[in-house]
């Protein structure tokens, strides 16, 4: 059963902002198992985004080790990190970040062009329930629809892990739930490891495991023996 995807050991991340040092992460240890749904919960400034960026190979720790399977990410070169993101990571942003000049389907296709074993773009658009709207530009889609396209785009590469940074943060209640359902589908049906950060405690209910962060530290870790489905949670 133990099949760690990420192994984080004693990781600290210090930013220097002008003359001030900000300790974003302090001596964090974490193991992420393949296929699990991990929710990282915490208020803003707790270090959850920093942790996500380190796992996604977008940032490097000041000290400590971040391993993806056998690959050490701390100290990897820019090109190696790009390669890592390209092959293994799908990313869902709070503000969707679709390419505005490409249609929904083209946004998904864009990801398939760089992946070694991509999934079918049309199928992915269908999976997120937007089969009819693939020809629309982002400016013609609602926020929820844009986020679903973003998920389709992230999944189309067939990544090992899907990193979601406040995926419902910019959405209303109902749309947020729809998006979470889509993410749940991806996790349960395709088996993609899901790491989701949020400050919304209610969402924690859908995770297999939940870690709470405060001031750059993991302060609590709970395992949900019975994760809730998105329909069941309320906020």
């Amino acid at each position: 059963m133990a099949d760690p995807l990420f192994t984080v050991r004693d990781v600290s991340r210090i930013y220097t902002m002008g003359e001030v040092e900000v300790h974003a992460l302090r001596h964090v240890d974490l193991i992420v198992q393949r296929g699990e749904c991990l929710v990282i919960l915490g208020p803003s400034g707790s270090g959850k985004s920093t942790l996500l960026h380190l796992l996604g190979g977008m940032d490097e720790p000041t000290s400590g080790s971040v391993r993806f399977r056998d690959q050490e990410l701390a100290g990897a070169t820019g090109d190696e990190l790009t390669e890592f993101r390209r092959k293994h990571v799908g990313f869902v942003f709070q503000f969707y970040n679709l390419v505005p000049s490409l249609t929904a389907i083209e946004n998904v296709e864009m990801a398939t062009e760089i992946a070694p074993h991509p999934r079918d773009a049309l199928e992915m658009i269908g999976l997120v329930g937007l089969g009819e709207r693939g020809d629309h530009f982002p400016s013609q889609l609602s926020g929820g629809e844009q986020q679903r396209v973003a998920i389709a785009r992230a999944v189309a590469k067939d990544p090992d892990v899907l990193l979601c940074d406040e995926p419902t943060g910019a959405l209303d209640y109902h749309t947020g739930k729809t998006v979470l359902s889509v993410l749940e589908t991806v996790n349960r049906e395709i088996g993609t490891t899901l790491i989701l950060i949020t400050h919304n405690a209610a969402i924690a209910g859908i995770g297999d495991r939940v870690i709470r962060m405060r001031s750059g530290r993991i302060v609590e870790m709970t395992e949900n023996t019975h994760p809730l489905s998105p329909e069941e949670i309320e906020w």
């Binding site: 390209r86 092959k87 990313f91 942003f93 992230a154 590469k157």
Partner: peptide
């Protein structure tokens, strides 16, 4: 900038 940064995060190289 945002679009390009997103593309980089998605794994596109600088050249791409």
């Amino acid at each position: 900038e945002r679009t390009f940064a997103s593309m980089r995060v998605l794994g596109f190289t600088r050249k791409e």
